[in-house]
């Protein structure tokens, strides 16, 4: 299952999968272009969704090119459909290779999910049964991606709403095995861990510790929405439309205690607030990366002294 084109020396895999700085980054949206270029905010890196830039020319490329001159870049795919039963879309892989050649991102990441079936593309990250057959297919697809792009990728742990009776291994066992077999790195989405563990009645701290944390190349932080399932239990939705929840910040602190400081992205794709609100969330992540206590605790300590 190991790729024939890549060295199997996995100890270096994370280095090649991500050379993003160990700082906080923000998702880059077109509404931010002018502001970022005119104010050059102190942001560790920006992340864009690859599919949004698979267009021939125009303002998106113009602005991303200029912003890339000043900031490291994470290229995050949402449409590769690595878990699909069908073959990967070769033209989509070509388009990814073209974007990588053009923008030289410090990292390329994708999801443990499927989003297409046959000719139809669903634009959502759909869940997989964790079986030996799925494992073989996902590893073959990750190998194909890494061979075509001539670099290691980061694979993101999913947020899911259902599980499959057919699963014969846990999600963490499955991810660990993909990482071991393919040499890919891990995009540790802390919000997804929280969402999935609430949705499936698991212990998020145990889940975190069962992942190959020595292979984390990037962390994602995001907000979720809360619904209710058929039994009246909370069902969390990975909506990227809200501030990071305190429970997710706590899990992030837990993760940082178990990894070395690593590039951490604040993901906000919907209901975008003012740019300063995003900067404030990034600043909180940076303080935690630097090993400092959260601002709230500093305030509490100051108040206790007065």
């Amino acid at each position: 299952m190991l790729s024939t084109h890549l060295p199997a020396t996995h100890s270096t895999a994370c280095v090649s999968a991500s050379s993003l700085p160990a700082r906080a980054g923000l998702g880059l949206k077109p509404v931010h272009f002018e502001h970022v270029l005119s104010t050059q905010p102190d942001v560790g890196f920006f992340e864009v969704h690859a599919e949004n830039y698979m267009v021939p020319g125009g303002p998106l490329h113009h602005h991303l090119g200029r912003i890339r001159e000043h900031y490291p870049l994470s290229l995050h795919g949402v449409g590769l459909s690595i878990g699909a039963e069908f073959a990967l879309d070769a033209s989509h892989l070509d388009a990814l290779a073209e974007l990588i050649a053009r923008y030289q991102p410090q990292s390329f990441s994708e999801h443990l999910a499927w989003s297409s079936h046959g000719e139809a593309f669903f634009n959502d990250l759909l869940p997989l049964p964790y079986t030996a057959a799925t494992l073989d297919r996902v590893c073959a697809h990750v190998d194909q991606v890494q061979t075509r792009l001539r670099r290691h990728m980061l694979l993101e742990n999913p947020a899911t709403y259902v599980e499959f009776e057919a699963s014969s291994m846990s999600e963490t066992e499955f991810i660990s095995e993909v990482v071991r077999r393919t040499g890919c790195g891990l995009l540790l989405d802390v919000n997804n861990i929280h969402v999935s563990c609430i949705n499936h009645g698991r212990d998020s701290r145990a889940y975190l510790r069962a992942l190959p944390l020595d292979r984390v190349g990037e962390i994602h932080l995001a907000g979720f929405a809360t619904q209710m399932d058929g039994a009246g239990d909370p069902l969390l939705i990975d909506s990227h439309d809200a501030p990071v929840a305190e429970a997710v910040w706590a899990l992030y602190a837990d993760a940082l205690a178990l990894t070395s400081p690593v590039a951490s992205l604040l993901e906000r794709d919907n209901a975008l607030p003012a740019f300063d609100v995003l900067l404030a969330e990034a600043a909180r992540a940076e303080r935690m990366l630097a090993g400092q206590p959260p601002q709230a605790l500093i305030h509490m300590a100051e108040e206790a002294h007065t």
């Binding site: 709403y161 057919a166 499936h200 399932d229 058929g230 939705i237």
Partner: peptide
């Protein structure tokens, strides 16, 4: 078929999240 929930709740309610995500995101586009 073949879906499982930890608390025995109706998987249809949870599957509806995917159904909604797909349709809403494409209508939004």
């Amino acid at each position: 078929g073949g879906l499982h929930t930890w608390n025995g709740s109706d998987p249809a309610r949870r599957f509806a999240v995917y159904r909604n995500n797909v349709t809403v995101s494409l209508v939004d586009a």
